[in-house]
């Protein structure tokens, strides 16, 4: 199989999804659940792990059937596979974690149309091996979980004054800006987080460029000096 890019090791693949191509903060995919369920850390984590579960299964299955499915009908086939897995997940949550099932509400069946899942199926699993697709799914799923838990942590902490996880209180503050747990707060928090990340990235790139510029300048200077020395040598020889 011809590969355009160099094959990543499993570790690199996972880190890629977690940081470099983080679906929430860098690729900006799957925004509906990101904004909709992140009112509390528990919900954010639950949604993230649900997507991780679905993504691992769909990426593996789609990678498995990628050579059997004719390319004209691949998207409908992928959607049916995804819908099946999501329905399975709905049953599982309804049976074992009914509180999470209730709080995720409509966003649980909507995982079917989450851009991350169909996006990874189409962009990655449809022309990579099962092994690679599995680790891609783990990376992307963990990246999504990280994004959701960061956002929900900030919103819950500042919006309600404390963060609860599995019945334990992790943090407690005396002030609460309930605005942040409302819909408007979701947009604001996510906008600020992405903005800050972009600013940091731009700064880093600038610094890198500055260093590169100095290096290039030094190299050019060296080259010029070399040429001058060569010229002087030649002149000396001519004389």
């Amino acid at each position: 199989m011809a590969k355009k890019k160099k094959r990543l090791t499993p570790k690199q693949n996972v880190i890629k999804g977690l940081i470099k191509e983080n679906p929430t903060f860098v690729l900006i995919l799957g925004m509906c659940p990101t904004l909709g369920v992140t009112t509390s850390l528990e919900n954010g984590l639950g949604m993230g792990l649900s997507v991780l579960f679905v993504l691992i299964l769909t990426n593996t299955i789609i990678s498995l059937i990628r050579n059997i499915v004719p390319s004209e009908i691949r998207i409908p086939v992928y959607i049916v596979v995804i819908a099946l897995i999501v329905t399975m997940l709905e049953w599982l949550l309804q049976a074992y974690i009914p509180s999470l099932y209730a709080s995720l509400g409509i966003f649980l069946p909507l995982i079917v149309v989450n851009c991350i899942i169909l996006g990874r199926a189409e962009a990655y699993a449809s022309d990579n091996t099962i092994f690679d697709s599995l680790f891609d799914a783990i990376g992307m799923g963990l990246g999504f979980t990280l994004g959701l838990s960061t956002l929900s942590f900030v919103r819950e902490l500042l919006g309600t004054g404390s963060v609860q996880l599995l019945g334990f209180t992790l943090f407690e503050a005396n002030v609460a800006a309930s605005f942040l747990v409302q819909p408007a707060g979701a947009f604001l928090t996510l906008g600020l987080i992405i903005g800050i990340i972009n600013t940091i990235k731009a700064d880093k790139a600038k610094k890198k460029k500055a260093i590169m510029d100095i290096k290039i300048a030094a190299a050019l200077k060296k080259k010029a000096e070399k040429a001058a020395a060569l010229k002087a040598k030649e002149e000396l020889a001519n004389v």
Partner: peptide
């Protein structure tokens, strides 16, 4: 500001 152009400022 450069970092807030596009999506971040749109979200705000």
């Amino acid at each position: 500001p450069e970092g807030f152009k596009g999506i971040p400022s749109g979200l705000i």
